[in-house]
């Protein structure tokens, strides 16, 4: 007569529980791409750092996640300005910078890929007036390089 053995599934339960919690943390119920905000792809590999976030959607501008100014298809429209400075964004960026100890974190620019340079250029000029002197353009990294290697003479590497 063979002895009855029961399979111990406790360790397997532990493993699945850890995986489940991990996946639940990253679960997004609405994983559909947001038509108003799509980052461009890039071959850049430098990992995005921390900083004050300026998000430029097609329908709004957000500073550190808070809506600041509505846009119409990425256009600033009749937003109140002083020269190139967009006043609503200037105030929000100055307030955000004041909250950073030392105020030296870079500005992380998360911009929709279809937003025109006319809008982005004015926002960067505004950020410069708010005291931000370095920028990081946040992109989706690891894209295929659009420039395949050619047989051209190699340039000097520094």
């Amino acid at each position: 007569m063979e002895p009855t053995t029961s399979l111990s599934i406790t360790s397997m339960m532990d493993m699945f529980t850890i995986i489940l919690v991990f996946l639940l943390v990253f679960f997004e119920p609405e994983a559909r791409p947001d038509p108003e905000f799509q980052l461009p792809s890039s071959v850049a590999t430098q990992q995005a750092a921390d900083g004050t976030t300026l998000r430029v959607r097609r329908d709004a501008i957000e500073v550190n996640g808070s809506p600041v100014l509505p846009l119409v298809d990425g256009d600033l429209g009749n937003a109140a300005r002083d020269g190139r400075r967009v006043l609503a964004v200037l105030g929000a960026l100055e307030a955000a910078r004041a909250q950073v100890p030392g105020g030296e974190l870079p500005l992380m620019v998360e911009c929709d890929q279809a937003v025109p340079w006319s809008t982005l250029g004015d926002l960067l000029a505004t950020a410069a007036d708010a005291g931000f002197q370095s920028y990081r353009f946040v992109v989706l990294g690891g894209a295929e390089r659009p420039i395949p290697p050619t047989g051209s003479a190699p340039s000097q590497v520094f």
Binding site: L23, S42, A44, A48, A125, Y135, V138, G142
Partner: peptide, 23 residues
């Protein structure tokens, strides 16, 4: 649950292009 959640997870890598000067 695990396969269902695995299908819904989007793994993206955020990278950056540094621009050191104001426009």
């Amino acid at each position: 649950l695990v396969p269902m959640l695995l299908l819904s997870v989007r793994f993206v890598t955020l990278a950056e292009h540094p621009v050191d000067r104001a426009p």
